[in-house]
Every structure is written in C-alpha cells, then in structure tokens.
Design a protein around this nucleic acid. Structure first.
Lengths: 197, 197
DNA sequence: TCGTTTCACATACCTCGGGTATGTGAAACG
DNA sequence: CGTTTCACATACCCGAGGTATGTGAAACGA
C-alpha cells in the first residue's frame, strides 16, 4: 500500500489528538507530559511540535474538537423537536448528560479556562455550544413565549448554571440527581414564561 | 524592638500570602514562579517551603483566604435584610459584584478548580459561599416562599449561574450589564415563587 | 530515471522552575 | 551559659517544555 505524505501526516495528527484527549481527560493538563503522549501515539516529541506550536496548542486543538462534538450533540437533540420551548429543554438535558463525560468535564469545563484563559475559552464555547443557547432564547422571544429582555446576561446565567450542574452531576452518585436537576432547571426556566404552564 | 520568633514567623507567612495573592491574581497560577514571590516578600524559596508544603499549598492557602473574605461579604450583605427573599437577592448581588475583582475572578473562579481539582474547590466553596446560598434557599422553603423541592441541585444551578455571570461581567464593558444580569437573575428566581410577585 | 528539493519527522541539547537536602545563626529554654 | 530549637538561607537535583539541527524517504522537475 502506498502511503502518501499527506496521509501519513494526517494519521500522525489524528493519533496525537486522540492520545492527547485520552490523557488530558484522565490526568488533567498539567499532569500530562507531551513526550509520553507522542510516544503512545507512536512518534516522538518532535512530531508533536511539528503539528502543534506547543503543549497548550495540542490542548487547544483537543478542546476545539470536543467542544465541536458537544455542540453537535446538543444541536441534534434540539432539532428533534419543533416547539422552541422543547428544543431548549432537550438541548439543556443533552448538555447536562454530556457534561458528565470525563472528556468534556475535565478538558472543557475544568482545565480549559485556566489553561487557555477565560476569554479564549468563552470564545470557543460561544462558537460551539453557547451559540445554540442564544439562538434558542431568541426563538422564544420571537414566538412570544418569553418576554423581550436582554438575552446575553440570561444566556450567560443559564450557561454557567448548566456547566456547574454538569460538573456536580458527574460527582453525585444518586441516579435521581439528574432528574432532580432537570426539574430544578425547568422550574427556573418556567419563571421566564409569560403565560401559564 | 524585640521581635519574637512567633511574630517573625507570622509576619513572613502574611507577606508570602499577600505577595502570592497579588501575583496569582495578576498573572495566573502557572505564570507565577515561587522563588520570585518569596523574593518580593523579602525571603527566599526555602521560607516558602517552610510555611507551605508546595507551590500549590501556598495557592490553596490564598484561595481559602479569598473564599473566606468573599463569604463574609456575601453574608454581611444578606444580613442587612430581614425578608429571606431580599436576603437571597442581596447576597447574589454582592457576589456578582465581588466576582469582578481580579483576585476573586482569576484565583477562585478560573484557576482554583484546575489547580486544586474540582472536588476540593467545591468543598472550599461549600464552606465559604455556597453554604450561605443553601441556607437562604432553606429559609425560603421554610417560610413557604418557594415550594418544597430538592435544594441541592437548585443551589448548584444558581451557584454556577452566578459564578459564570461574575466572570462575564468582569469582561463586559457596559455599565448596564450588571443591572441587566441582576434583573435576569430576578426573573429566574421569581419562577420559583409560589405566590404572585 | 535521476538529481534536487521538500518535508515529516527524529535526535540532541538547553533552560527554567518545582522540589529537596542540608547548613546556619539567632531566639528560646533549662 | 551551654544546649536545643527553629525559621529560615544555600546549594543542588531533575523532570519537562521548548529549540536547533540532522535525516531519510516521498514529491517533483527534467
């Protein structure tokens, strides 16, 4: 089989990303040593620096990847529904469930803000997940389900609430915790509705 | 002036904590080099390791200090009011304002979860701020202002909402952002009330 | 087909910073 | 006043991120 250079390059990059994702999720950014990631991926540290500008650069690429997948999952869940209100709820539920995944939890929610800086983290979050939340809220205003109001602060509050709840859910043993959290979130959201339930 | 050993020890510890707090807030945990903190505090690295078990140990002590002060401020603000509902609102407003302080923002909200681990961060947060939130919610249930319900998930949602909102507020230029966030938070909380506004 | 260029890495090396082991001089103590 | 304690200072180790340079096999042009 002929292996072109482009194919080999892509394969190496994928291997580094995959191994990085595993280790960042399992051990946390600081505990991960780049040379070991490279070794496990079948290459040396030089390859890693050829593909990424630094250890933080590899981490950034992993975060972007995970964020993107997360956003897709949330969007897919929302699209299962037609009613804007149910779209929002479905997205929230999916996010809460996904946040329990150690990959999302450790990489995106815990380490990323500290490693990449809060501003960059927020920009990446906006591109993947938070954007969907903002759109969902806009739909709710457009359809008159909730009153017109500044949506940016509201989106931030809800985004933070779900981030933290996801982190907490992953640590709470009770299987009823997820359901309780969803109910509590429902109650909060219902406060925004204009008409009765 | 006679300087006893205990006094000197306490002074050195205070100096290390103060300088650490400054640098951790300004540059972030990773960028801070322990030897420079010690030097700026008028001692050497050896002194730092005599007082704290590691760089993370100094950071942990700083986090505990800042968390404690933050909790006090929130509690003080709440105690200005008698009505449980207003106590909660006052505490939330105070927290949102305090979270904009770079010391709280960078040290407690951004770096601490990654450096100390989310579990330890959460335990410290519970001891200082989150405990007050939980008590406020219990009061609201006791007085019948909000319906009886599992309070732990609700407290987590609200805590996360305010953490994220505080982080965002510190970055948003507009002076109306704080007021808008408080209004949005009010709307969410109002959803919990049993009776009309 | 063959010389040349490109490039995807490997290898060797540097440096900085966290951590440790040990020394020291002045209080504390009997 | 001799001895002990202890709050540091000094010297050293080493692991890990980052860099500079080498290399061999594809890619390419003639």
């Amino acid at each position: 089989m002929a292996v072109t250079r482009a194919e080999q390059r892509a394969a190496t990059r994928r291997a580094l990303l995959a191994e990085g994702r595993r280790r960042f999720a399992a051990d946390g950014y600081h505990e991960v040593v780049l040379a070991e990631v490279a070794k496990a991926a079948g290459v040396t540290k030089g390859a890693a620096y050829h593909h990424f500008e630094s250890k933080a650069g590899l981490f950034r690429a992993v975060v972007a990847e995970v964020q993107h997948e997360l956003g897709e999952r949330v969007a897919d869940a929302a699209e299962q529904h037609d009613d804007p209100w149910e779209r929002l709820r479905a997205g929230c539920r999916t996010f809460l469930a996904a946040g329990c995944d150690p990959v999302v939890r450790r990489i995106v929610l815990v380490d990323a803000p500290a490693v990449l800086g809060w501003d960059e983290w927020r920009a990446m979050d906006e591109d993947s997940s938070a954007r969907h939340l903002a759109e969902a809220l806009e739909d709710l205003v457009r359809t008159g389900t909730i009153a017109q109001q500044p949506l940016e602060p509201l989106a931030r509050l809800l985004s933070g609430a779900m981030n933290e709840a996801a982190l907490w859910l992953a640590r709470s043993a009770g299987p009823e915790a997820a359901a309780q959290t969803e109910r509590a979130l429902d109650r909060l959201l219902n406060g925004l509705r204009r008409d009765a339930d």
